[in-house]
Design a protein around this nucleic acid. Structure first.
Lengths: 191, 191
DNA sequence: GTCTATAAGGTGATAGAC
DNA sequence: GTCTATCACCTTATAGAC
């Protein structure tokens, strides 16, 4: 589609995701976003037809990225190395998202669930979790892989009150995630 | 304080926590709660002065329970057995809460944070996490204990789409939590 | 692309009768 | 304890000028 430039659209997205992560989607009004950008609410409506459309646009890249990982993983053997590479790719993807985005997903799950991209995302996460353990994994294994996915993207803000850099937090998250999936043996199902 | 009976106060709490967990605090209006109970909004205000007061009342027991665990733990030696017993007590506490309560905490963190009990809770969770690892634990250890606490109370709804009973989910959560803190060695600081 | 002005509706909360 | 009626406020969203 068209790529008209003036940057306002991108600025709206950046401010929105930041505010959504900080105060939540419901408590962030279009008035607040507009004020932050020093434009009027009506200007926002030129770029996005609804408030929800902002959210939708925000998650497009993430969903595409998840699909890419899933697509790649489907063609790989179900080995531990593959599972760990899934986590590494997911870590990179999460890390490249705008500040606050993964936090919004993780800490506003209830809200997300009622938004359009919420179901799309949840579906991808379920698929990914399923790939990290075998088809008949134990409940504990299931939990282990779910936690692995969470810690990979959430370590950054979960460790917010520790004395460390973002870099170190990301690394710690991935490290623990790799350890978690390594502890979840899968039955080598060749199909 | 007085314990006037008619049960309406308790019914309000029960419906509220359920709706808060399902649709979030902001999207749950007093009108909705009132309709569900077949009373008017005004009736709600006889029992609770504000919407937030409902939330506050909801978390009183949980906070008291957390303080009890913290108080007990402070008098124990910093051994692995103590740390695991903390998790067992926390598991029992979480399990005894009304349906939806722990889910509301976990999946509406952003909202909770802006509510009165949010800070109180977060403070207790920080304390508890600190007790599960040593004072100079690594970032990974810190993460391990945070995840232990989360999985203990969140396994029930994290495993919602698996074929299992609530009982089994609770047990799986506690099992993984115990395993996580066992993997986080603390420097035996006698003080 | 951005503005002013306004519509239409829901929200938390209050007053006062019963 | 619960009701009816109402308030002030804020929200998302739209119409139309520039």
């Amino acid at each position: 589609m068209g790529e008209r430039r003036s940057g306002t659209r991108e600025r709206i997205q950046a401010v929105a995701v930041e505010l959504f992560a900080e105060h939540g989607y419901d408590k962030t009004s279009l008035r607040e976003i507009a004020e932050r950008l020093d434009v009027t609410k009506a200007a926002l409506y030129y770029h996005f037809n609804t408030k929800e459309a902002i959210v939708v646009s925000l998650f497009e890249d993430l969903i595409a990225g998840l699909d890419a990982i899933i697509g790649w993983a489907e063609e790989q053997p179900r080995t531990l190395e593959t599972r760990q590479e899934i986590l590494r790719r997911y870590a990179r993807l999460a890390r490249e998202r705008p500040k606050g985005m993964m936090r919004f997903i993780q800490e506003s799950k209830t809200t997300m669930q009622e938004l359009a991209p919420g179901e799309d995302l949840q579906c991808r996460f379920r698929t990914l979790t399923g790939m990290l353990h075998g088809p008949d994994a134990s409940l504990t294994d299931h939990l282990r892989t779910s936690l692995a996915l969470i810690t990979t993207s959430a370590a950054v803000f979960m460790l917010k009150d520790t004395d460390s850099t973002d870099e170190e937090r990301y690394d710690a998250g991935l490290e623990l995630a790799l350890e978690l999936v390594a502890g979840a043996p899968v039955e080598s199902s060749t199909r």
